[in-house]
Design a binder for these strands. Structure first.
Lengths: 346, 346
DNA sequence: TCGTATACTGTGCACGAACACACTATAATT
DNA sequence: AATTATAGTGTGTTCGTGCACAGTATACGA
């Protein structure tokens, strides 16, 4: 069915008023007599008017700016991928007048607040941020809400009662998924020992790591008896002694960050230990192909960055509403299906 | 960096010629003196001109029609999902003047050719088709190429030397992925028996089923000794006697279509048999949650339909080139991560 | 020297929505 | 009655591109 697309001019003719009056009724700008309003509304009730978004955004063309508050990604391959997604979106969107302004912060220098303030001060049309620690962000969230600047937060735990969008994964479920996979890899379970390994300082945004831990533990607690779970923490780099001391009688290791390749490198003298980690960064993929990592859960940082920008620009260009929460599915990657995920575009 | 967006008018001023001349140079319409052409090209070399797609398509606004040659989906949940993806895309695209015209065919009645011919006769601006059997399609592919009608084929094996787009998955890899998962589920392997189950008539488009079979067999052949693989075929419905006779000493079943729920229902008296199937249709998800199906590989029919339409409409509206092949990643779904895939939008 | 064919160049309008502004009609004020 | 305020209208222009068409300049034949 080819349905005719009505324009405001069509409506004006049908209602026997001028284009201006139709415009005022549709966008309720006021200054319309009730008789004229009725005539227009009668026509609008009969036909299905959809404004032409192309014309709409051609006219209202401003150079929309999106501020990106982002960690200094060069040190972290995870953030590098996320950045690539953002860059990809930018490439596609310059033609619609979208421009990105980056405000990098160095997690170690604790200048997250400083960067965010600077971003807000420059009055962007929208903001995409990777929050450092959640409690530091509430003021910024409030401020952007007050100024009606749409804000998307990446990779952050959920928060109720906010018009801000949270984009990431359900980390608790992520832990449970890892656990189910681990269970099928290490069976039978009698006296099996499993390690959960965290990387990162507590001062940083690490609460999602503990959500993963909780999910992982809950799965084994509920369904598989006799599995012993032990948790160890590393800061940025690895302490080999500490790790090896903990590896005795271990059947599986679950690493809650993208750093699993650091662990995998130490496992050559401990064959048979099953490893589950996160993210398709180069080092992890190499280990997956060699068999030193068994499963990678994909957090899709590239897609997250891309989608975040797309949400904001669809709002700025087409006024499409932004959903409050966008949870990405948890991709399970093994040696045999990894190819499709490396190549895949979106 | 806020990069200025140049318009043809800007270029005209910089090159000290008229807008018309710039237009003629950029779109090589001829009728330009070499001196004027040089002036314009000099400016074009310095700046980065990107035409404004909004203005471009606002001008050339036609009611683009896309013909959909599609199996009568009511009988098959798989195609129903695919149809939903197409319908979703249509909803978003009416505003850009895209309208879809459906040409359904009933696989049993063998009226696929008839429907495709009818679609071609009505001269659509683009075609999306689900080929019935590949060899029946070559003539149609040639004809659409000849008439320069862009064509996207869903769920079809690859074909070289064609300007037609193939959208689907790598079915061989899909089989290997299933095999790796099966291997981790049924270990240890000594004298284990595994079943491959196909559904569907050979006259229909079933070649991808055999690609899956090949991949599955190859994995076990190369890596895991001592596993016995047996293949059985069913037409549309299941023959219980035939199935049960084949179930003795079977450790795992790999079903190459979305019909795994039919098998799962017969397995209540054979606990412990691992089942791997395809697609997130309701019946399969129920069995996954109950534990009678262990893994589902997601072929993402909804996304395939959606993306297919999006490719074509991006071409019609924005003249974006369509890639020749789009292979979707192979999603692995287990009980713990299934939620995120049901809810996920794109 | 005029006409005209040809090669080139510049201008104007269309697309559809948004908005500024000018205009009309009526009511309220002086 | 003349002026001013104000609610309510209609028109013109803008956005950037594509295309039709109207110009201009030069060369060439009559």
């Amino acid at each position: 069915m080819v349905t005719k697309r009505y324009t405001m001019r069509d409506i004006a003719e049908l209602a026997e008023v001028s284009r201006g009056t139709v415009d005022r009724v549709i966008n309720n700008r006021g200054m319309v007599s009730s008789s004229a309003r009725e005539k227009v509304e009668k026509v609008l009730g009969k036909i299905d008017y959809k404004p032409n978004l192309l014309a709409q955004s051609l006219k209202g063309h401003k150079n929309h700016s999106i501020a990106i508050v982002f960690p200094d990604y060069k040190t972290e391959p995870y953030w590098k991928q996320c950045f690539e997604g953002i860059a990809k979106a930018e490439l596609e969107l310059v033609q619609f007048g979208i421009s990105l302004i980056f405000y990098f912060y160095a997690p170690k220098k604790k200048n997250y607040e400083e960067s965010f303030s600077k971003a807000l001060k420059n009055k962007p049309n929208a903001i995409l941020a990777v929050p450092m620690e959640f409690k530091n962000s509430v003021d910024f969230i409030r401020e952007s809400e007050l100024k009606k600047i749409p804000l998307v937060l990446l990779n952050s735990p959920l928060q109720k009662n906010s018009s801000t969008t949270f984009l990431g994964q359900n980390y608790f479920k992520s832990g449970r998924t890892a656990a189910q996979l681990m269970a099928s890899l290490i069976q039978p379970f009698e006296n099996k020992k499993v390690l959960i390994v965290h990387f990162g300082r507590k001062s940083e945004n690490t609460s999602h790591l503990y959500d993963k831990e909780k999910g992982f533990k809950e799965y084994f607690h509920n369904s598989e008896q006799g599995v012993i779970i032990k948790v160890i923490n590393f800061e940025k780099s690895i302490n080999s002694l500490k790790l090896i001391k903990n590896l005795e009688n271990v059947s599986g290791i679950y690493i809650t960050t993208s750093k699993s390749y650091l662990i995998a490198e130490h496992l050559k003298m401990f064959p048979g230990i099953k490893v589950i980690g996160y993210d398709l960064i180069r080092e992890n993929i190499e280990n997956l192909n060699e068999g030193t990592i068994d499963v990678l859960l994909n957090q899709n940082p590239k897609k997250q960055g891309y989608k975040g920008i797309l949400f904001l620009s669809d709002f700025l260009i087409y006024k499409k509403p932004i959903p409050l929460v966008k949870l990405f599915p948890i991709d399970i990657i093994i040696k045999e299906n990894v190819d499709g995920f490396i190549k895949s575009e979106y």
